[in-house]
Amino acid sequence: MTRTWKALQPYTLVTPQTLVFLLFLVFPILMILIVSFWDFNGYAMTPAFTLQNYIDIFTSQVSLKTYLNTFKYVILVWFFCLAIAFPVSYFLAFHVKNQKWQIILFLLCTVPFWTSNIIRMISWVPFLGKEGLVNQLLLGLNLVQEPVQWLLFSDFAVVLGMVHLYNFFMIGPIFNSLMRIDRNLITAAEDMGASGFQILKEVILPLASSGIAIGSIFVVTLVMGEFVTVRLMGGGQSASVGKLIATQIGSLQYPLAAANAVILLAVTLILVVGILRVVDIRKEL
């Protein structure tokens, strides 16, 4: 009796979590897959098996452009997040020696993540708007003759907004992996005459790679499915797959939205697998 309980115990304990993900993640995604083959008659979806939704997507110039535009966002946001997160984490991990300050400054970087994304997007308006601070400054300095239009409701604003929202996901993992680096390794490298740059390249970067990979996975997947920032910060021209899906659902075209979602998921998985191929993250977990 006690033995069977011991053997069954872990399964009993993980049942709730398994159920949560089966009900709200696995089953819904299977349904997306199924519905992506269904028919749409203009106002409702009907069970069927048709490849028409996929054919529509692959033959449409608009959706092709949308996918390319999404990739553009992914690459730009990923690049800027990394370019910001690495120096910031490096500063925190290696230059701030006082542990208390290290914690405080790290928290400072993470607090905005806990606040509303929507509000954080809205708060760019007084800066980037047509009568915003940036334009007032540029006009005041006579750098431009009339307000710059592309600061808000443009691809620039979308990328800025996403970097602002998601850099936390890069800083967290990179800071974590930098903190785990044995400081003796750096002292040893210094003793052997390595320059600061060499230490960075030969010691720190390889050991931080798993953190960078985890951060990259987060940022890439977040941006792939993004539509809030694109809606709020982007102009009419700005398009992303997430926004496309949301628009299609708005007009009840569930099968088409589902087919787009399947493609989006496949592309995202390929990107994640690609990152995992380059870097082994298991030692980090």
Binding site: L25, I29, E226, I249, Y254, A257, L265
Partner: peptide
Amino acid sequence: IVPSVLVSLGIGI
């Protein structure tokens, strides 16, 4: 890491 819009769409469907 599943794009959030997928979760929403899936549950909606």
